[in-house]
């Protein structure tokens, strides 16, 4: 299968030499797989020994999985070498960083005790900014308004417990 995929890819692309270069992204994935495999094996080796009728303890499955991941790590290196990964578009970093930052920011704000509405507003604002909507002050403001509506809807309507912080106590007081 791999070989005919290769054939198909080559037919479409004349710059075969460029294609033959090592796919560094694929190689990075392979390294990640090796590290992950080692981590699982390391964890499994730390379990205390036990003997039972089954002669198969909690460490057996992790070892199987670790070996499996290592094997596919090797195969990933082969895929990267042979250029079996499909062609990728140029990566647009900026929006990706905005969105990851927005979610990380929401997490940090929740840990800091800012409450759901502000934290979720920051997520909404950051994500909208990531997709190109400016200015970020506006998107965060829209986010806070929408999050406040969602908070009331889910807290009062469905009884979902969302973390309270700076704004939420006042809103809850309104509905008491």
């Amino acid at each position: 299968m791999a070989t005919h995929e290769q054939g198909g890819a080559d037919m479409r692309r004349p710059d075969e030499a460029a294609r033959r270069k090592f796919d560094l992204g694929g190689l990075a994935i392979a390294i990640g797989l090796f590290l992950f495999s080692a981590l699982i094996a390391l964890d499994a080796s730390s379990y205390p020994e036990r003997r039972s009728y089954a002669q198969i303890g909690p460490e057996i499955f992790p070892y199987i999985v670790a070996v499996g991941i290592a094997v596919f790590g090797v195969l990933t290196v082969v895929m990267a070498r042979r250029g079996d990964f499909p062609e990728r578009e140029a990566l647009n970093w900026v929006p990706v960083i905005w969105i990851i930052g927005a979610l990380a920011g929401m997490t940090a704000l929740l840990y800091a005790g800012a409450g759901f509405i502000i934290a979720s507003g920051v997520l909404f604002g950051g994500a909208a900014r990531g997709f190109g909507r400016k200015p970020v002050v506006l998107t965060v403001f829209v986010g806070v308004v929408i999050s406040a509506l969602l908070y009331v809807l889910f807290r009062q309507g469905l009884g979902l417990s969302l973390p309270a912080g700076l704004i939420e106590p006042y809103l809850n007081a309104l509905f008491r």
């Binding site: 909208a128 190109g132 829209v142």
Partner: peptide, 12 residues
């Protein structure tokens, strides 16, 4: 922007 921001918000 609004659509995907909304999806992210709802997911979280």
């Amino acid at each position: 922007p609004w659509l995907y921001a909304g999806i992210m918000t709802f997911a979280s």
